[in-house]
Design a protein around this nucleic acid. Structure first.
Length: 364
DNA sequence: AAGCCGTGGGA
DNA sequence: TTCCCAAGGCT
């Protein structure tokens, strides 16, 4: 080995980018995870299942997705089944998974696929990119994993692995163009789908955010960050703004229905936070507690010594809980839902929490 | 382009 | 407790 070879890792790049994919694919063939949406070796992938898994896994952990994926594919096993589904049922089936625009886009895309693509996904990245819910990542991932196209797949795992492999010290998100270019350099012509999944498995199990297991890494010999001892510090990230606090009121409005107690639910507007989801009525969410503003009806509201606190991505919400009994005059907007089967309403987590609190108070 | 958009788990 | 983060997309 001459001097040039020995300092190569210090030049902020793998000595030989073309050596990365073979080493990684060899590791993947021995350590790949067995996942419900993943084709077994030698099996043809099912594009519907690949697509659904990619959407469910956006910003969502494998542990959370696994049971939801199984339940979903039992209920809607194909594009055609999903395209024919009722929107309210689809939204309720997504309840608790978060980022609810994903569910709306999933259904919208299934219907476009049924009506304009003969019931099958297009194979190319560019064509996939035109469908609702397909951004740069998902289009590349589906093209590569479902159809074997050579696409450059970059998710948060790949960003981390590649930032370390090439010791890219520009903070995210400014580093994205450089990271994508570097990923392009190590993506193989063959098995691009396995390569992408291998990078993600590696990022999940070995090249982790904290305490990366560099001793177990099949790429350590090629890794610039490993050579310079800065694996755990990369990638750098721009600091995030601090999360503000907001306050609101939940109105737990009940009545005696034909088959037991019922509570008033509303449907949130299609766009915005928790868009299109069933919900408990709330007033505005503001920096100061808004009290009984925008109550669904005028009645004798009673404050409960309970509420719900919930962290969203960009603010924390504290909801006070008030209860009231519907009187005869004036029917409020919304739907009356049997309290005994509230679990079937498909409430987002913040409202499920509040409902539990309200029922606990009433039972106690 | 940067802010909006959920949730649950790990440290 | 609090903070960070995960197979991102949309505007």
């Amino acid at each position: 080995m001459d001097a040039k070879d020995s300092i190569a890792p210090l030049l902020s790049k793998p000595a030989d980018p073309s050596a990365v994919a073979p080493a990684l694919l060899d590791w993947y063939d021995r350590h790949r995870r067995d996942l419900p949406w993943r084709a077994k070796p030698g099996e043809a992938p099912d594009p519907y299942r690949v697509w659904l898994s990619e959407v469910m896994l956006q910003q969502t952990t494998v542990a959370t997705v696994r049971p939801r994926f199984v339940a979903w594919t039992q209920r809607w096993p194909t594009f055609a089944d999903l395209a024919a589904a009722d929107e309210a049922e689809v939204m309720a089936a997504w309840a608790g998974l978060g980022y609810y625009a994903r569910a709306r886009n999933l259904l919208a895309a299934a219907r476009v696929i049924a009506t304009e693509h003969g019931g099958a996904l297009p194979r190319t990245e560019d064509a996939l990119r035109q469908l609702p819910g397909f951004g740069a990542y998902t289009a590349a991932a589906v093209a590569a994993i479902a159809f074997g196209e050579r696409a450059v797949v970059v998710d948060a795992n790949v960003e981390r692995v590649v930032a370390r492999l090439f010791a890219i010290s520009t903070p995210l998100p400014a580093a994205r163009p450089a990271i994508r270019a570097a990923t392009d350099r190590i993506t193989p012509e063959q098995r691009a789908g396995d390569f992408a999944q291998a990078m993600m498995d590696l990022g999940q199990a070995v090249c982790t955010v904290r305490r990366p297991r560099c001793l177990l890494c099949p790429l350590s010999a090629h890794c610039a960050a490993q050579a310079s001892g800065e694996s755990e510090r990369l990638p750098f990230k721009k600091a995030k703004p601090e999360r503000p606090h907001r306050y609101g009121t939940i109105f737990w409005l009940t009545r005696e229905g034909v088959s037991g107690r019922e509570v008033l639910l509303v449907r949130r507007p299609d766009r915005g936070l928790l868009g299109g989801m069933r919900a408990l009525p709330t007033g505005p969410w503001e920096e100061v507690q808004p009290g009984l503003a925008n109550a669904p009806i005028q009645t004798d509201w009673r404050a409960l010594n309970a509420g719900a606190s919930h962290g969203f991505t960009h603010f924390t919400l504290d909801l006070a809980l008030v209860t009231g009994e519907a009187h005869g005059a004036g029917e409020p907007a919304g739907e009356w839902w049997p309290i005994a089967s509230l679990g079937d309403a498909g409430l987002p987590t913040v409202f499920a929490k509040a409902a539990r609190a309200a029922m606990g108070m009433e039972a106690g």
